[in-house]
Structure formats: structure tokens, C-alpha cells
Amino acid sequence: MIWQALLLQAGYNAALVSLGAALLGAAAGAAGAFLTLRRRALMSDAMAHATLPGIGLAFLAMVALGGDGRFLPGLMLGAALTAAAGLWAVQRLARQMHEDAATGAVLASFYGAGIVILTLIQGLGTGRPAGLETVLLGSTAGMLRADALVIGFGGLAVICALWSLRRPLAMVAFDPLHARMMGVNPRRMDATLMALVLAVVLVGLNVTGLILIVALLVTPAVSARMWSTTVTGTATLSAVIGAVCGYIGAAISASVPDLPTGPVIVLLAAGGFGLTLLIRGRRDG
């Protein structure tokens, strides 16, 4: 069964999920490499949690307009808006406190607001929020061809953008002052990187859910970093690790009943990191 899934022989839907998860893993791995090099790993956590109120609000807005509340592009737009607001809030608060604290505060309060809105939806009885709550932990079971295409093309677009911007992104991460002197605007580069990470978070909501997407961004990246001495090498390897974990994880979850896709992918990536630590970790640490 597992071999069938790995060879894309386990049915149309399973194949779709495997390919989608692989592309998502690749995009997340590549974006995560730059994110961790810029030391913003936890920023993605805040961003992912801050999508929840947007999803709820978009659902309410679409229902109020007489549409289908679960229309995916609409939900993603809402998610993007509040995630961007959350990012802005982190940056604003970070002027007055350590970035860590700003990140945690925004994460918790945006997520809390999201939960309030979910209970509001539930109370209004306009829809089964159970359908919405899959964004917490993802759900690949009902993945449609259209969803897989969104993930695939979104992932490819992110990878292409990262590839073409790899030099300025690396310069800003390594030495932002020098980058600025060389005519690279660090703030604009950071904003671009955050937009790309946001894109990964949005397409990842369907697969891993918003709590675990941060693992897909960070874990392959920190493993890759221990094997490569260049930025491009780190990002490429990280993308490969992400893709492999996504693919195998989706295949395993398709062939074992009750095994959720997102957590399996995360555990595979963690296994890869564990191996990396054993082989490449500092002995004296």
C-alpha cells in the first residue's frame, strides 16, 4: 500500500495530495532557508496564527454577501490581510520591546481573536465551523484538483521568486548595512521575503494547518544549513528535504488510516533533523 502510494499508484486523489505536498515542501523549505538565515524563524509562527481571524472574517463576509463561505480564494485573501496586519503589529511593537515578546503577543492575541470569530460563526449558525477548523491542523483528505493546482503553482512561483532574489536576500541576511550600501533596500527585501513566506503559509493551510506550517519552514532549513556552506546550497537542499518529506509524508498518510498528513510530514522533517544532528552536530556542545 505504501509503495503504491509512493509510486503514485494509490489512486488519483492520493497522487494529487502527494505531488501537492511535495511542491509545498519545496517552497516552504526554500523560503524557510532565507527566513532562518535572517533569524526570523518565529515570525512565521506569528504570521500563521494571525491568519485565523482573517479566515473567520472572510467567511462571515462571504456569507453576508450571499456566497459560499468556504470559497477558498476568498478565505485566503482574508487570511493574507490579517496575517499582514499581524506582521505589521509585530514590527510596530518590536520598536518598543524585544522582537520575541512582540511575536508572542501578536500570535496569541490574533489567534484569540480568530477563535472568538469562529465561535461567533458557530453561534450565528450560518455554517458548520467544523469546515473551517480544518485550517488548524490541515486536511488533505478532501483535496481537490483545484486546491492541488493552487498549491503547485503557488509553490513554483515562490521558488522562482526566491531563486531570482537569492543574492540580495543573502546579502541582507548576512550584512544588512553593507547590503544597503550596495543599493539593496533591506526593508524592501525583508518585506518581499515576508510576502513569500506568507504565500507559503497560505497555500500550506490546507496541508499542514496553521500550527504546523512553521515546522515545514524551519526544520528542513536548519538541517540543510548544517550540510552546506553556501546560501544557495542551503536553500536548495532545504527545498529538497521539504519536498521529500512532503511527498513521503503524504504517501504514508494516504496508506495508513487515521494518520493526518501534516503531522506526519513534520515528524519526517524532524527525523531528518535528528539524523543531521547526530552526524553533523557539534560534539562538544
Partner: peptide, 26 residues
């Protein structure tokens, strides 16, 4: 051991444990 910034190390560890929890639960 990995000479990581604490934030990244935290993200790796807590997502792994959380994923493990979800898998056990399901």
C-alpha cells in the same frame, strides 16, 4: 549542538512534539 538561534531551535522542537501529540491522538 546545531549552533542555532534559540527561536529556530524552539520552532523545531515544539512543532515536532505537537505533531507527535496529534499523531498519537489520531
Amino acid at each position: 549542538r546545531a549552533r542555532l538561534e534559540p527561536g529556530a531551535a524552539m520552532a523545531v522542537v515544539f512543532t515536532t512534539m505537537f505533531a507527535l501529540g496529534v499523531v498519537l491522538l489520531e
